[in-house]
Amino acid sequence: MNHMWIMAEDDDRFDGMLMAMAQQQEQGIHQLINDFFGFLRRKTDFFTGAQKGEAEKVVIGSFKAHQKIALDAKKKKEEEAAAAEKAKAERKAKEAAARLAAESKKKDQDQPKIQELTDEEAERLQAEIDREKAGEPSEGADATGDTGNTESKKETKEDDDDEEDDEEDKGKMKPNSGNGADMPNYRWTQTLQEVEVHIPMPMAVKPRDLVVSITKHRLKVGLKGHDPILNGETCNELKEEESHWVIQDKQIVILYLEKINKMEWWDRLVKSDPQINTKKVNPENSKLSDLEGETRGMVEKMMYDQRQKSMGLPTSEDQKKQDILNKFMKQHPEMDFSNTKFN
């Protein structure tokens, strides 16, 4: 008897029939396999019609082939899950690194600036100190020691604050407490990851009363039959599939918008809005100790490499390559590596 079998990984023609059989086996898979071989014994010459050992070879060959397919599929699934988890960890690390970098930049901006005095200012300051030591009143001070009008000082301070802004930032709005802006018809706030928009309605509403559209580049919110309250092209792209909206207290529509670029602050919600000064945002506090082990390691490595690059020093990858080269050089002293460079 000649036996020929064809293995098809995705051949599911008999799945329905085999599943029905399996559901009737009280003892599970063992009984199903036993019934199958019983069928071959009673109704075919599978065990007796072939050469000795042929039937066993067919069974074992088929078993091993399908076992390999199953193991390969399992391995592939585990690798895909591991890759997805790694990508998620890397994304979290980048977001955390961006927050930490923004906080560091904010702290640097808040540090008082040291200014070098001119010769004329130094002489005037020294003369002022000498007069104070001698008990004489300072120039411009009255008998009570008042050195000037309080309002004038306040105005001068405000002028100085304005002068600290770059030319390109003059006229921009100061961010609200949520790093966004308070507009006439809505209020928006943001983190590096997402934007939240609160839109008050003139009356209690239900979802069927509203027109809400969230796309990659545009937002539209309003009451049916009325002009939109919010309608415009967003200043940056957002993830449409990850964004959603809810009604709070029957009268406030809240949009939750996830940014695509999680490394920058939005300077406005839609392009028709006035810009805010993103240099004055107040990033949320982030600590390395709050991060998971793997994510924290990635953040520390990224921050270390960033510092090394800013000082013109080798990064961790450069150092690793140099260590490998040094080891190889010790093993092969006869070779010349003086012109070896890393790209």
Rank of each mutant, 00 (worst) to 15 (best):
M1Y: 04
W5L: 09
I6K: 15
M21I: 01
Q27W: 07
G28M: 04
L32C: 06
F36M: 15
R42A: 09
Q51H: 11
I60Q: 11
K64Q: 12
Q67W: 13
K77Y: 08
A84G: 03
K88W: 04
E90V: 02
R91T: 13
A96G: 00
A98T: 02
K106S: 02
D110P: 00
Q111K: 12
Q111I: 05
L117R: 15
L125Q: 09
A127C: 03
A127M: 01
E128N: 10
E132Q: 11
K133A: 11
G140N: 06
T144W: 01
N149T: 05
K154M: 13
E155F: 03
D162E: 15
D162T: 10
E163K: 10
D166N: 15
G171H: 04
K174A: 15
N176K: 02
N179R: 13
Q190W: 03
T191Y: 02
L192W: 02
P202K: 13
P207C: 08
C235N: 14
N236H: 02
E242D: 15
S243M: 05
W245R: 08
I247E: 04
K250F: 02
K250N: 13
R268L: 01
K271T: 08
E284A: 05
K287F: 06
E292V: 02
T295R: 00
V299N: 01
K301C: 04
Y304I: 10
S316A: 12
K321L: 07
D323Y: 04
K330T: 14
Q331E: 15
E334Y: 03
M335P: 08
D336V: 06
S338Q: 06
S338T: 14
N339H: 06
N339E: 07
